[in-house]
Design a protein around this nucleic acid. Sequence first.
DNA 1: ACACGGCGC
DNA 2: TATCCGCGCCGTGTA
Length: 610
Amino acid sequence: MEFKNFAREIASSNSDVHKEACYKTIRSQADFKDFIKELKRKSEFVLDIETTSEQPMKAALVGISFCWKEGEAYYVALSNISEALKELKPILEDEKIKKIGQNIKYDKLVLSNYGIELRGITHDTMIASYLLNPSRMSHGLDDLAFEYLDHKMTPISELLGTGQKRVTMDMVDVEKVSMYSCADSDVTLRLKNMFEKELLKKELDLLFNDIELPLVDVLSDMEKSGVKIDVDFLEETSLEMEKELSGLIKDIYGIAGEEFNINSPKQLSKILFEKLGLPVVKKTKTGASTDVEVLERLSSLHALPKELLRYRELSKLKSTYVDALPELINKKTHRLHTSFNQAVTATGRLSSSNPNIQNIPVKTEEGRKIRKAFIGEKDNLIMSADYSQIELRILAHLSKDRELIIAFEKDRDVHSHTASLIFGVEEKDVTAEMRANAKTVNFGIIYGISAFGLGKGLGIDPGSAQQFIDSYFERYPSVRVYMEDKIEEARSAGYVTTLFNRRRYIPEIKTGGMREQQQAERIAINTPVQGSAADLIKIAMINIHRKMKEKKLKSLMILQVHDELVFEVPKAELDKMKKLVKEEMEGAVKLLVPVKVSVQYGKNWLEMEE
DNA sequence: ACACGGCGC
DNA sequence: TATCCGCGCCGTGTA
């Protein structure tokens, strides 16, 4: 809310971006020479590269635009790329010359593939926008220009076309690309000038300068490194799965008495609820639900649901991972280069895509096997470092709850500890079931508990769930106070914050209906916990990355999965890396409780020990 | 483009 | 009366 007003206020004070804009294309050798002379003298400028692909590891450079003054920009058409880059390299690599960009990790990555290390990044408008309001749907330049500058940018489709007729940037008339690119750089500079002030005003400058911007370099290196994939193993697995699936399909058609598309919930509903007359357990917006929960409940009534569950599990694994991963391997590097997005989640976590490596299965044996395909080069090991119970430790820190702090100080199994407290038994007498229930309660607390939600999680009625919650709060009273405080904070300030001042607006806590308000309250409770954990691991990543460079280690940081960091490590560096990573992760931030990290290693992401 | 279903932390 | 306990990405079908 507050943010929108700010945006409108600024927008109204800005006139049309293009009104007096002067964009120039540099084509000739002579012009380029003059341009370089000029560029060298600048202490700060925006750059924006034009390429042939949205995927940086596949992209070929087409041109680069520069802007150091609003309304004035230059596009260097790279007819002789290596000649031009030779001149640009010392400027782009000069730490003292400040570089500004929109999603500059992309530019850095592409340039690095041309042998240029982009240094001196001091502003990224995408990240600035993200910190100012992480809940925004999009932090794309066109959306930001429209909202903050009241400027409608030329859609990329106007240059490239759409669908079958879509071409790549190198096919487009240079003058058109030039105008497009110059406008991007110009707009980026205008946004930067606004965002800079706003970051200061909201005390987000430390988070921006000391965490998010340094992280750009880390993520860029991680994406460039990628991870090696055991394609032979996946192809074998695919064949095995294929076999079992075709058997399952035959069985399912047999039991159903007809052939149909098992992947279609609509057709499946027809079979289950009309033809077989099974009871509708749950409904979706569009019809009867056929999800896991439903199929599990129907399993006792009929033979079909069980087969369907197995079919679903297998086909999901096969299509999403086993068959998809090899397709994504880069033809030049022969590795898989995931994108780590820094401006997506509302809480401050990273997200990963193409593929999403943050949801590689781990729960079932079958799913876990996918991790076996993530390997190292010959003589390299995969090393994984996990934060233990990081969100509960952060909850202990934020709430300062005495009981919870003591539990972690004494290095207790926190789920068993909670079980002993809420069930009133000695910790040694806690049964597996009691521990499992306590675990659900602990997670429920982090998510901003409701009796309904917890009841569902525990498979009990909301009334009984409420009793668990009551006894939890009786034993951890400061956690309740923490929750009440966060809700109050969100109501009065309009937002909540993390350990490092990351901010999330929650207007719904006042404006929403009953349901939205309750959801807003859960967000107010969960975001500081989840977001502080994100702050913490980001700091660890930056510090580890720096140390690895200082020590000139050959090891690579390759993946991040929220509370886990994965490395590819030459055997000779294993001991050094184990120590370095553990120390930096545990010491990233000083909390009121100890921070614990467990390190494992092995020849792949599945088979790991110690 | 959207809904569903399903995987992770 | 039925109900989404937090945060994501992706494959598939349907429109």
